[in-house]
Design a protein around this nucleic acid. Structure first.
Lengths: 195, 195
DNA sequence: ACCTGAACACCGTTCAAGT
DNA sequence: ACCTGAACACCGTTCAAGT
């Protein structure tokens, strides 16, 4: 809790995570190596291991850190609208950190405190909508997969990759909104799987 | 088209891709290095570059190769059922090659001939269902994102990771089916985005 | 407790040379 | 055309030692 009294800064875990985020947005995922990170912090590469257990643990910390920026809706609004807004905000935040989106999926989402908080808020919104209790965790998983998946899919490729017309960011955002609407409609229209 | 007449095997591109697939399923993504692959084929590491331009190009070839195993529905069946079956088969195939699923998303799907063929079949099914023409490419993208995303999310973690109860493969498959049903329902109920 | 130098066991890729 | 030896420019991580 307390900072060291000395005037020499001294590395902290938060500083390591912050520098990792900076390096990530400046140089991308391939530019984020433990050695490059250490160089930016003016320490030897192995000094980082006093603050993070491994590169994987560091990436997990960065992942959850990013989710703190998601806008959560007010408690009392229309739940359907709240869901649409929450997922859209998540999509936007993920797009701002495009390089690490694939990591979310390969780790099945983040598992830190921020991710957990967002999951609980989403589940509460689903309950306040007309979603039956046993379908809530399933709908939650479907919404997470859809949102992270779409963000991963929207990442802009380096120009000139692929011959097909590349949809613009605005088109992809519209596509995301429409698909989310379909999903939310389907969840409410067909809470039960029998046809 | 023709094979070399000599009795000495000689490496081919197909052999490299095949060995890469084997290595991938035996040792996982981290086990698939160019050097390990070369060792398995009894050649020097740089010999591989006579057949593939880079590791990235090799992975792209593997990605599309895997999609050849997807079952495509018959021409004349119910289109809604055909969509459900096609996406489910894709999901199943992806799960059998869990380690490279995150790669599909980070490259926005595969772009080889097999991926293209599956995309065209899916679009045709959407048209044969009641989906309006301008919504077809959007619905296609949504289905791809959902299917690949869910497969990425289903990848089993090493045992003991995370404290929350881990859903079984059967539960995840049920979840996938339900979510796919929601999506297809929403696409048909709300072909237009105005409410 | 936190940091360093040095090392271990790896990577992908390139280049010049051989056949 | 296809393969090799050798090298380049890197990785993540560990260990013993210093303060």
């Amino acid at each position: 809790m307390e900072r060291a009294p000395g005037h020499r800064a001294g590395l902290t875990r938060a500083a390591v995570v912050g520098a990792a985020r900076e390096l990530l947005s400046e140089r991308g995922l391939t530019g984020l190596s433990m050695r490059a990170l250490a160089a930016r912090l003016d320490v030897a590469p192995n000094a980082l291991y006093s603050h993070v257990a491994s590169k994987t643990a560091l990436l997990d910390a960065v992942l959850d850190d990013v989710l703190a920026e998601v806008d959560t809706p007010t408690e009392d609004g229309d739940p359907a609208e709240g869901l649409q807004r929450l997922m859209t905000s998540t999509y936007t935040v993920l797009l701002d950190h495009a390089d690490l989106v694939p990591l979310y999926l390969s780790r099945q989402g983040a598992h830190g405190p921020n991710a957990q908080r967002l999951g609980e808020i989403t589940a509460a919104l689903l309950r306040r909508a007309e979603v039956a209790e046993p379908a809530v965790p399933e709908a939650l998983r479907v919404l997470i997969v859809y949102t992270i998946g779409f963000a991963a899919f929207t990442r802009h490729l380096p120009p000139g990759a692929g011959t097909e017309r590349q949809p613009s960011a605005a088109e992809m955002r519209g596509n995301f909104d429409r698909g989310l609407g379909w999903l939310l409609t389907g969840i409410r229209v067909q809470p039960d799987r029998r046809r």
